[in-house]
Structures are given as structure tokens and as C-alpha cells.
Write a protein that binds this DNA or RNA. Structure first.
Length: 377
RNA sequence: GGAUGGGUAUGCCUAGCGGCGAGGGCAGCGGACUGUAAAUCCGUCACAAAGAAACAGCGCAGGUUCGAGUCCUGCCCCAUCCA
């Protein structure tokens, strides 16, 4: 259930009630693709750094360790000891990211496992069954994410197929939720809008899927090569055609600036690998811009990553020490960096919600962006 | 003193066995990463350089050869073993 609390322009402050608790939006979901936040971050850590929703992946958990196994173990929540909401991506993005290892057909997608090469078939029904076995809070529809550089006719055909797949997803999810041995009988299903950078295709698709009454609506296929301007333009064109009484989710996005721009254009949910991956690579987010702790200039820097930051890394350790850990390839180095970055993202979302509550999001956004662009770190 | 194996570029390790203006790795330095095939990947890492020509370089000095890290001689170092 989606409850709009406050609105400033198109930016929305809302909450989404789920069986695993209420999600305050706008929210950034912390990505743990294989039911693990890369960088040795535990679910206990997630609680400490203010994570509301964890995100895992259908394809990756299907190939290892297997959704049937996870079902036997009581579902994802019990498996990874996390009782707050979990969103599972459908495997649709792997149709894009594993492009060299798959073949798309009307019935679904034939993958060669990136682990051992064995043949895997995943269509809408399979994706729903896997996600039902995982028993996530929110399942994503199985879609195709076309390249931002795809030809118009390819995108038209692809989006039509994604719509047909959505019908199959919805039907299968309804069936699964009614089954006796389904762990989460209230599993929500979000649709995904596609259309590359063609506004008219996006709008047409948005209207189509809006009529189908899903629990939420995502915009996929952005931040895959197009410019920021194109992405923001697509959001402006598309979001108004999605249901106002359902959450909007911008998939895979993005930088702190992308998120601020997304919120301004009405997006409620975000996720991105940036804070985790960049953290592992020593790139840290601060209110004064990004820093690369591998750089020699931090060798003798005794300041925390960010002055005044309340994360587990900044409360206790210096840049010089964390840089040392990174250079020594000690796991703790990556872990502290990932914790800092996720804390930065989670805290920024809290600030965004506070600003929306207070009715000064526009001012907050402006000062946040100016700070990050100053690059004084 | 004897035997054997070695000394390869900016710091370390290493490929090379007659066409080498010398390949690779580590370390260093820098960059990239957007629903994670990513603790990954890319660049740079002797001099010079727009390009061309010429010149330097494999412990040192000679030699053989059209041509020498590569073969030969002597020397200097290092390692291991034997006295």
C-alpha cells in the first residue's frame, strides 16, 4: 500500500506498507546481488547504517545456491537474517548484462550460466517462481532491458514483448501467492517500463502497464550509456504517465546527483551498485565530492573520510589508515569504505525525506549539489 | 682455493638460448565503473619522440659473426655445495 505524505513540486514524500514493515520513501535500496552486500557487510551492519530495503537478484540466486534450496531454508529473509523488506530483481537486467551468454525468445531467455556454462531457461513464469521461492517482499517483473543505443524498431518489438511478459508475470504471481506452501503470500509485483531513449515508446508503454494494476512501477533501461540529460528528460516525460497512487522506482540509478534529480522528478525507489562497488575500489562519497583513497595524497591524511560523518569508518579511523588497509588488500579496508558509502547514501535519503517533510527539498537539493561539486576534499 | 648455477631496463622478480630497439608479473602512479560475470578492468611505468632518421640499453672488458642478453675469452659480483 502506497501512502503519499507530502509533495513538493513533483517530488514525493511517501511510505509503502509491506508485510516486512513500512518503507519510508524516497529510499535507496542497498544492493546485495547474491544475498550478500559485497565487501563483507553483514545484515547487522545494514541495521547499523540505516538500510531500509535490501536488494537481491533472481538470476544470481537461481544459479547459486538455488532458489529451491533457499525456499527449504525458509526464504531469503530467514536465510540471510534480515527481517526488513527485500526487493528481488527479476533477472531482466542479466538479459542485458550477460548479453553474450543468452538468446531471447518469445517464451523467455536461454542463458548459458556465467558460472559453469550450463543451459538455463528463464521466462516470466520461471522468474516469478524463483522470486516466490526466495519469498522477497517485492518481486520485479521479468523484462528485457534494451541498450540505449538500440534501433527504434528493435525497441518497439522488445517493449511489446516485455508487456506480454508482464501479463504472464502477473498471472503467475497471482497463482503462486494463492498456493498453500508459498512462504510470502503477499508478495508484491512491480512492473518495469522500457523504451530506451524514445519518449513516445516510453509513454505508450507507461500507459499500457498503468492499466494493469501492479503494486509499483519501475523505469528500467536507464543509466546504460545515455547522457544524464537524456535520462532526466525520459523521467520527465515518463513518470507523469505512471500511476500516482503507486511507488515509482528508477532502476539501477545512480550517483547522488542522479538520485536528487530523480526525486525531483517524482521517483520513490532507487538502487545502484555504485556505493558498494566504488567502496571496494576505494572511491568514497563525501559532501564535498568523491575522493579516491588510493591516491598518494592521502598517505599522511589523519582526517576521517568525512569530518562529522557518523559511519563506523569515520567514527574511528583515518584516511591514512583506511588507505593502508586498501593498499595492503585487507578486507577491512573495503568493508569500511563500503560501509561509509552506504551510510552516505542512506543518510542522504534521510536528509531528502526530512527536507520534503519540511517543504524545503529544492533548497536542500541545491546546497547538496553545490557542496558535492565544490570538490574540496 | 675448487665445483655448480646466476647477474635482463626506474625498486623487486622473471621470459629470452644468433635477427631484440628485449616479453611478462609484482610494487608504484593515475583513471574507469549506474536493476554487480567487477576485491575488477584500463592506462602509465629507461632516454628521446609531431613524424622520420640517428644515437643508448641486458654485471664489466674484449672477441667471433652480416647480425650478440643469446656463442667464446678474461675479469667483477651473488647464491649454494665441497675443502
Amino acid at each position: 500500500m502506497y501512502k503519499l505524505l507530502k509533495q513538493e513540486g513533483r517530488a514525493k514524500r511517501a511510505e509503502v506498507v509491506t508485510v516486512h514493515g513500512t518503507i519510508q520513501t524516497p529510499v535507496f535500496m542497498n544492493v546485495g546481488t547474491v544475498a550478500a552486500i559485497k565487501g563483507a557487510v553483514s545484515t547487522a551492519d545494514l541495521e547499523e547504517i540505516g538500510t531500509q530495503v535490501e536488494l537481491s537478484n533472481t538470476y544470481h540466486l537461481h544459479v547459486r545456491t538455488g532458489d529451491e534450496t533457499i525456499k527449504k531454508l525458509g526464504g531469503l529473509h530467514k536465510f540471510m537474517s534480515w527481517n526488513k523488506p527485500i526487493l528481488t530483481d527479476s533477472g531482466g537486467f542479466q538479459v542485458f548484462s550477460l548479453a553474450g551468454l543468452r538468446k531471447i525468445k518469445e517464451e523467455g531467455v536461454y542463458f548459458n550460466s556465467h558460472i559453469d556454462g550450463r543451459k538455463i531457461f528463464m521466462g516470466p513464469e520461471e522468474s516469478m517462481r524463483i522470486q516466490s521461492n526466495l519469498a522477497s517482499t517485492i518481486a520485479m517483473a521479468f523484462d528485457e532491458c534494451p541498450s540505449s543505443k538500440a534501433e527504434r524498431q528493435y525497441v518497439v518489438n522488445s517493449v511489446e514483448r516485455t508487456t506480454r511478459w508482464l501479463e504472464r508475470c502477473k498471472k503467475e504471481m497471482n497463482r503462486l501467492n494463492a498456493l498453500e506452501d508459498t512462504i510470502n503470500k503477499n508478495q508484491m509485483l512491480f512492473a518495469i517500463n522500457q523504451g530506451a531513449i524514445f519518449s513516445d515508446i516510453r509513454i505508450e508503454h507507461a500507459k499500457r502497464i498503468s492499466e494493469m494494476d501492479l503494486d509499483g512501477y519501475a523505469i528500467g533501461g536507464l543509466a546504460v550509456g545515455e547522457t544524464h540529460e537524456e535520462m532526466y528528460h525520459i523521467l520527465e516525460e515518463t513518470v507523469p504517465h505512471l500511476p500516482k497512487d503507486k511507488p515509482t522506482y528508477l532502476m539501477g540509478v545512480g550517483t547522488p546527483a542522479n538520485i536528487l534529480e530523480g526525486v525531483e522528478r517524482g521517483v520513490d525507489f532507487f538502487d545502484c551498485v555504485y556505493p558498494t562497488r566504488n567502496g571496494r575500489h576505494g572511491h568514497l562519497y563525501t559532501n564535498h565530492g568523491k575522493i579516491n583513497l588510493f591516491n598518494a595524497k592521502y598517505e599522511l591524511d589523519q582526517k576521517p573520510i568525512e569530518e562529522g560523518c557518523g559511519c563506523p569508518a569515520c567514527r574511528r579511523y583515518s584516511r591514512a589508515y583506511i588507505r593502508h588497509l586498501l593498499k595492503a588488500k585487507e578486507m577491512l579496508g573495503m568493508r569500511l569504505c563500503v560501509l561509509h558509502n552506504l551510510y552516505f547514501y542512506n543518510t542522504m535519503m534521510t536528509e531528502i525525506r526530512d527536507a520534503l517533510d519540511a517543504g524545503n527539498f529544492a533548497a536542500y537539493k541545491k546546497s547538496k549539489l553545490e557542496g558535492m561539486e565544490s570538490g574540496e576534499s
